Amino acid sequence: MPPRPSIGTQASQVASRRKRSKGDLTSQAILDTAERLLETRSLDEIAVDELTSGAGVSRSTFYFHYESREAVLLALSERVADAMHESAALWLRRGSEPPEDAIRRALTAALTLWRNHGPVLRAALRARDVNPRMREFWSEVGRRFIDAAAEQIERERAAGLALPGPPDARLLATVLESMNEQACFTQSLSRRSPARDRKLVDALTVIWLRSVYGITQ
């Protein structure tokens, strides 16, 4: 199996049409190093010297780009959050696609993201309990997700496709998004298994369909 791309590498592919500066490459090298180290250790256990050594830069260069290890984690979080929104959009902008198909694709994409970048996501979510900047960032990410999901539920209700409330759309979206986060967090801690991942996606899809649309399988 080929090595999976890092968050920094994925972002660089998206931006491949523009010529990257030396500073871009340096930032990416630092982020890639941090992501790799987070696979085996917590952020507190990673020294700045390890980040500089892995990225091939000096300490002064590191601090030119990031004020701390926490700032590096925040930058990684920003990138992975963008990818999370892209996965959610598979349902939020489903068009004429059947709800079951759109929800299943969105959940599969979200779980794949957790599988590929679980160490970063877990470190970020743990950091929000102790780091005010991370707490503010993830609170905003959560609000964005919940607001968008609630709006989609309201649209589906208005079209006669989804069950009417109660609960109100925002509360329902909050509960479902919290369920997704906890389920994916736990699954990312286990050994990779396509079969187990499909079962989890199947279960989450059923819950979403029943809760939003009243569809039973």
Score class of each variant (00 low, 15 high):
residue 205 T to D: 03
residue 108 T to D: 15
residue 44 D to R: 11
residue 66 Y to T: 02
residue 31 L to E: 11
residue 45 E to Y: 01
residue 97 E to I: 06
residue 140 E to T: 09
residue 158 A to V: 00
residue 75 A to K: 02
residue 214 G to D: 01
residue 59 R to G: 10
residue 216 T to N: 06
residue 19 K to W: 13
residue 81 A to G: 03
residue 108 T to C: 09
residue 137 F to S: 04
residue 96 S to N: 14
residue 194 P to F: 03
residue 56 G to H: 01
residue 27 S to R: 09
residue 191 R to H: 03
residue 54 G to E: 11
residue 81 A to S: 14
residue 102 A to V: 06
residue 201 V to S: 03
residue 24 D to A: 14
residue 112 T to L: 09
residue 209 L to E: 04
residue 157 R to H: 01
residue 27 S to L: 06
residue 172 L to T: 07
residue 22 K to C: 06
residue 58 S to N: 02
residue 111 L to Y: 05
residue 111 L to F: 09
residue 86 E to P: 00
residue 116 N to A: 13
residue 37 L to M: 08
residue 147 D to I: 04
residue 167 P to Q: 15
residue 81 A to I: 11
residue 76 L to D: 05
residue 5 P to W: 14
residue 117 H to Y: 11
residue 207 I to A: 12
residue 107 L to C: 13
residue 170 R to F: 12
residue 22 K to T: 08
residue 67 E to T: 12
residue 57 V to R: 06
residue 99 P to I: 03
residue 39 E to M: 01
residue 139 S to L: 10
residue 212 V to I: 14
residue 106 A to R: 12
residue 41 R to K: 11
residue 71 A to K: 06
residue 189 L to W: 09
residue 37 L to K: 01
residue 20 R to Q: 14
residue 151 E to N: 03
residue 168 D to V: 09
residue 128 R to Y: 12
residue 8 G to W: 13
residue 52 T to R: 00
residue 128 R to I: 01
residue 106 A to H: 12
residue 109 A to S: 09
residue 34 A to R: 10
residue 141 V to G: 00
residue 142 G to R: 03
residue 193 S to R: 02
residue 129 D to E: 02
residue 166 P to G: 14
residue 81 A to E: 10
residue 107 L to Y: 09
residue 115 R to N: 08
residue 204 L to Y: 11
residue 165 G to M: 11
residue 86 E to D: 15
residue 188 S to E: 00
residue 3 P to T: 15
residue 43 L to K: 05
residue 78 E to N: 03
residue 74 L to E: 08
residue 122 R to T: 06
residue 214 G to V: 02
residue 174 T to V: 07
residue 189 L to E: 13
residue 72 V to P: 15
residue 134 M to W: 05
residue 55 A to Q: 03
residue 5 P to N: 12
residue 23 G to N: 09
residue 178 S to C: 04
residue 129 D to I: 08
residue 194 P to I: 04
residue 213 Y to P: 13
residue 144 R to F: 09
residue 50 E to L: 04
residue 167 P to F: 15
